[in-house]
């Protein structure tokens, strides 16, 4: 089977790769590009661990074909910090211990980033519903919600 040549932008960098038609964007990121920050918790859109942003839309990369990324802009967890400077959400997740095992963390951070970009002052309920596509089995979500609230406050102050 011939591979499909894809030319796309990931975290601001032009990237080209070959992929099979049934390969997901998650497969491509992890297995072809070595970007293993996005995790596969289910492969069927249920857990959000594979969350990335494509052209400004939050999606599950396990439910996007690698071939579909042609000409798009993809943002992953690997592009969230700027050099030495962590994103406020990353910082607040650390301070609040919003992670235990951490497998869900990249997905939550990407989803929370998308949430705060669209709604800089979410209520607790908006945060909870906004992050309902991301499963965390360790924390009971309490500290995650608090970290997002705190990051929102910090980002507004900035």
């Amino acid at each position: 089977m011939a591979g499909i040549a894809v030319s796309t932008t990931i975290n601001g960098d032009g990237v080209e790769y070959l992929c099979q038609p049934d390969e997901t964007l998650l497969d491509v990121l992890r297995d072809r590009l070595g970007l293993t920050g996005a995790k596969e918790g289910c492969g069927t859109g249920d857990c959000g661990a594979c969350s990335v942003i494509v052209d400004g839309r939050l999606v599950c990369s396990c439910l996007v074909l690698g071939a579909e990324a042609e000409g798009r802009k993809v943002e992953t967890i690997e592009g969230m910090a700027h050099g030495e400077q962590l994103h406020p959400l990353q910082q607040k997740f650390l301070e609040h211990a919003a992670l235990q095992c951490g497998i869900c963390t990249p997905g939550f951070l990407i989803a929370a980033k998308d949430l705060l970009e669209k709604n800089p002052s979410p209520t607790e309920e908006e945060i909870r519903f906004g992050l309902a596509g991301n499963l965390c089995r360790c924390t009971g979500y309490d500290k995650i919600v608090r970290a997002v609230q705190d990051a929102a406050t910090m980002m507004k102050g900035a």
Partner: peptide, 9 residues
């Protein structure tokens, strides 16, 4: 339908 992630698609 689905989550924020699914909504995007």
């Amino acid at each position: 339908i689905g989550s924020k992630q699914v909504q995007g698609r």
